[in-house]
Write a protein that binds this DNA or RNA. Sequence first.
DNA 1: AATTATTTGAGACTCATTCACAATAAGGGC
DNA 2: GCCCTTATTGTGAATGAGTCTCAAATAATT
Lengths: 141, 141
Amino acid sequence: MSKNKEKLKMVLHKEGLRFTNQREAVWNEIVTCDEHRNVDDIYMTLRKNGILVSRATVYRTIDVLVKNNMVRKLDVGVGPSKFEHKMNAPHHDHMICIQCGRIEEFVDDQIENLQDSVAKEYEFKLVRHIHQLFGICKDCQ
Amino acid sequence: MSKNKEKLKMVLHKEGLRFTNQREAVWNEIVTCDEHRNVDDIYMTLRKNGILVSRATVYRTIDVLVKNNMVRKLDVGVGPSKFEHKMNAPHHDHMICIQCGRIEEFVDDQIENLQDSVAKEYEFKLVRHIHQLFGICKDCQ
DNA sequence: AATTATTTGAGACTCATTCACAATAAGGGC
DNA sequence: GCCCTTATTGTGAATGAGTCTCAAATAATT
């Protein structure tokens, strides 16, 4: 059994939820693609591959995945939210071009550390964060 | 004429928009309150004070104010966006409690600087950013 | 004052997301 | 494997924040 399937089973069990074909299909579709996609993209791709899962189920499954840190939700400021899986990928944040919508990832450990310090200082238990830079990308300038 | 009124006039002029009672009323309502409020909060307060401005106009005016850096839009992850004015207030980011919804502000110049460096490195022209820490606040723990 | 262009208000509309509920499928015990 | 209980699914309707349309009102220009 693949590592990802294993991971899904664990999380579902932890949440007291059942392991179903639909949930596996959704997780599988998300984890085998490295793009930033919205629910409809994911739904349509599944459908194109002959896997009929309802949109509602995609939403419901993603909620669980997001809550359990397997998927990151990305509010890109306009239109539907986008999602990306977090397996085998180092943590990163995003730069979003307000002209062409292109999303670029960036990593900065110093920022991460400072962030942790701030949270500690306020006795705030950090669960997740959003750090997005909006602007004009190199190509659009 | 107050400094804030002056500022609004300038921005509207720059945008090729007219200075109207409604736009002044919305800006005034926002700039004289230091809380994080959504469009409906602002609309209802105006209405309570006998100032009848339509919801659509509040949305439209806020768009202009956000675009011109007079107001910050805050996506709090659930429900409608909140807004706060940016006059006389040093730049800050937000910690949002996912339990009680409380919003706390924090300032960290080092993070701001690092952020600028990252943008520079990618030749990305930074227009604005979102940096939000989600977690459990001191009181909710 | 007349003309032209912008803004406003009201409500219809959009569209992402959530919900309700009947039908279906999982998991546990036998 | 079969039954029973309980969770999950699909469907389509509902929700709700935000946007749009358009006629009437207001502002700027002549």
